[in-house]
Design a protein around this nucleic acid. Sequence first.
DNA 1: ATAGGGTTAG
Length: 561
Amino acid sequence: MQGPCLCLSKVYQSLPRTNQLHALFLKTHLPHDPFYATRLLRFYAINGDLRSARQVFDESPHRSVYLWNSIIRAHAQAYRFEDAFSLFAEMRRTEIKPDNFTYACIVRACADSFDLDGLKLVHCGVMVAGLGLDSICSSALVSAYSRLSLVDEASRVFNGIRQPDLVLWNSMISGYGSGGFWDKGLQLFSEMRSMEMVPDGYTIVGLLSGLADSSLISIGEGIHGLCLKWNLDSNAHVSSVLVSMYSRCMSMNSAHRVFSGLFEPDLVTWSALITGFSQSGDYDKALFFFKNLNMEGKKPDFVLIASMLAAAAQMAHLRPGCEIHAYVLRHGIESDVMISSALIAMYSKCGFLGMGTRVFEIMPEKNIVSYNSLILGLGLHGLASEAFRMFDEILGNGLKPDESTFSALLCACCHAGLVEDGREVFRRMKDEFCIQARTEHYVHMVKLLGMEGRLEEAYYLILSLPEPVDSGIWGALLLCCDVCGNLELAEIVSQRLFESNSEKSAYRVMLSNIYAGDGRWDDAKKLRDSITEGKLMKMPGLSWIKGSEFLFDQNIPCSRI
DNA sequence: ATAGGGTTAG
């Protein structure tokens, strides 16, 4: 029995799409051999051939738990969640009982499809099946809850397990990390080490993924040291997360040092480095490494191209943007909606709205992201009524506006100074489209009011928000105070900003500008001197202030330039 | 009898 099966299977694997052979194989051997049916099904699934996988499943009369799990997993991994769920329902009607792996797979599918209600239901199913303390199910539950931003629920599951295994520790640590609770992750990490559990690459990735502030650099360096000690730095995921951690912490020298020590960095690591350079404002280096990547014969993918286009947009330099557009055309990927949307944004930010509109027009299919890019571009050029026309077109085409759509519309109102229209958009977003206002929306509302000189209204809007208020919102008001020259309010706002410890330096620069604008040179200088030189340089958009020391001496207020 | 299955990076 095993002989011919194995042989056929090998032949089959060397000729993956030979249908006659497949048919022969199915007819003669499969019905009697659930083991190879599972192997074959998995082989199809790995190669993305769901139809054949399904065929194997349908033609197997004896379906083991393995076969069921494999077919469910195949659909879930291909993001065919409906199919996965209905297969699961079908399985429950047979005498085969779902096991811990079946549930783990379904739990993950719930998280991947952002189905919180489904997740809660499946969680109940796990409890009823008596798998509440199973480590396989628990680790899937911990990850799923964290991914749906219910970290408390995740830690409740985690705390219920007396002796977590490594995967479970890792799930909880990366749950904390991805939620930004790096301190809790670190605490858990030391707890884990005190139990003599040896960390692996997953542990490190979870720990480092939460670090995203230059003040946390020494913590990152410490964990980097541990990687070297445990020889985990050769792990591809670890090295890429090291590069991106240093990038996020604005330490590009360290990021580059890690990168150049790698034997063969993969595409994700390359793009972590390149995106890091571009986000820290070093666009030349970003372009330089992008060229190097190409010269090494590696192909950038959609994520990297989109990131490069964002860099070109930030530079507001048309040439690199055009070159990447040409690359996109040469490789025939212009029909990808993410790429086209990034192109629209790039052209309109570079001042070539016409080109952006052109890209939009020739897109074979437009989704909400492409509309959002265009609306943002129109708004940037002061064409608010055009932006509103696009919004109507979205509704007319049966598309669903999302939070970015409203963000773009509010931005358009800001640029055109349309206070009342902005208020109306804000109201409709909440009432009609049931979208909760986020930081970016409040930032726009504050700017909209503040730039029209209605500083008090903006101030009271912020005071009506629940604590903690994001520092970006206060920052927007401070900017308006700068423009309106309202020193009194600026000092109140600054007080709020300096109390929270994030991005202190940027706001100190802003306040020092306002002091300078008011002729209070001593106060301005004192504030400026309290900012370390390095930080001043690393703040995008603020570096020009450093080279403009003479502005103070000539008694020209910076804020009016 | 045999199988793979839960946690990571831009």
